[in-house]
Structure formats: structure tokens, C-alpha cells
Amino acid sequence: MSRIGLQVCSELHRQPVWAAALLLASIAAASGLRAQDPSPAVQAPPQDAQSLLSYHLEAAPRAETQLAALAAPDLSPQARSEAVEELRWQAFVYLQAGAEGELLPLLDGLAKVEQVKPGVELPVDLHNATLADAERFRIQAACWSPDQYSVGLDLAEAWSGRHPKASEAESNSVAAMKEYLESRLQDREEIQSRAASLLWYPLLSLLLLLGLGRLLWRQWFS
């Protein structure tokens, strides 16, 4: 799985949109997300643009309501669990579609579930799984956005420690993404280092030419 993930990540570099579907398929297979995600409303994520819009038109208003409800302490544990499950599923749908604009606010909302944990009766396992998924999805989204590589790597490095009960498949997928982010950041660092050293090259070249010119001058005019 790790190898597949990396391979697709490198593909991603040259064709982000195509790679999205492939990569998400590999992540879903690795994490068993479809099997373990008991979304009551949706059996499979949208497969084309039209079904994605259908899903969004139906689910987006509900998501706003659910996020608001999760903040209320009097929500029943059952309702809370269902809301969180559906939001997790929705985040997965947006992630696999590449809908970054919808995904990131939703992940922010899911992350806030932790803030309401004290005093509310969200099952601990569900709570942990929700956070693990939210962070995992954010790491994945960071793999596609060069300006988010560092953020993604920080999250990936902390992920295993924060979610020790995560499945082996999930851990492997995060490890693959971490490896990818490390390699991209290392490449970037090398390029920046080369760019910094190149700053002096024109000056050195000029000095070299001036030195040669001086020799020429002496040869001809002395």
C-alpha cells in the first residue's frame, strides 16, 4: 500500500486531477473507509460531476445544521453519533472529489468536535475515529497543495502518536503520505538552497570577466 500511495503521489505531481481519484481509491481501500463508515444516507461516493452536485445540494445545508447542533450540549448521544458519522462521510466525499473549498471548512468543523467532548456523551471510539479521519483527510489535501506541505507533514508526524488505536491500513496510508511530503519538502529545500547559491553566480561571473579583462588590458596597453 505504501508503495502504491507513493507512486500515485508522484503521478499527482504531473496530473493532479486524475491522480485524485486513483489516490483516493487507494486510500479508501487501505483504510476500509467505505466498509467501516456507516453512513445511513449514502452507500457509495458520487462518481461523476452531476452526482457530486446532487449530493452537495442535498448534504451541504444539512451539514451546516449538524455542525451547529454538535456544538449544543443537549444533543442526544445517538443524534450526535449520527451527525458525526454523516459529516465524516461528507468529508470523504469532498476529499475524493477534490472539492477542497468544501472539504477544509468541514474538517475544521469536525476538529471542533473535540472541543465539545467534555460533558457530552460522544462515544470515545467514534470521537477518536472522527478526529483521526479529519486529520488524515487534511494530510491528504495537503499532499495536493504545495503551500500546505509543511502543515501536512506536521500533522502526519503527530498522527500516529495521537491515534494509537488506528488500524494498520490507516497508519500505512498516513506513513505513505508522510514519506511523500518529506520527499517533496526535501526537494523544495534543495531547490531553494540552489537558488540561494545561484545568487552569487552572476557576481562571480562578472568578477571572472573583469579579471580576464584586466589581463587583456595589461597585455595590450602596458
Binding site: V17, A20, A21, P46, Q47, D48, A49, Q50, S51, L52, L53, S54, H56, L57, Y94, Q96, A97, G98, A99, E100, G101, E102, L103, L104, P105
Partner: peptide, 26 residues
């Protein structure tokens, strides 16, 4: 708008194209 576009879109178009039509990227 998004609802009109949903009615206009045929089946089978790429998923990423749909993502580009959602409000977050528009």
C-alpha cells in the same frame, strides 16, 4: 447558479469538474 447548473450537467462528466463547480472553488 449551482441548481441550474446541476440541471444542465449530463451524467458521466469528470468528478473533478463537479468539484470545480461547488461554491468553495467559485
Amino acid at each position: 447558479d449551482l441548481e441550474e447548473l446541476h440541471a444542465l450537467l449530463p451524467q458521466g462528466w469528470p468528478l473533478a469538474l463537479g468539484a470545480a463547480c461547488l461554491p468553495g472553488l467559485v
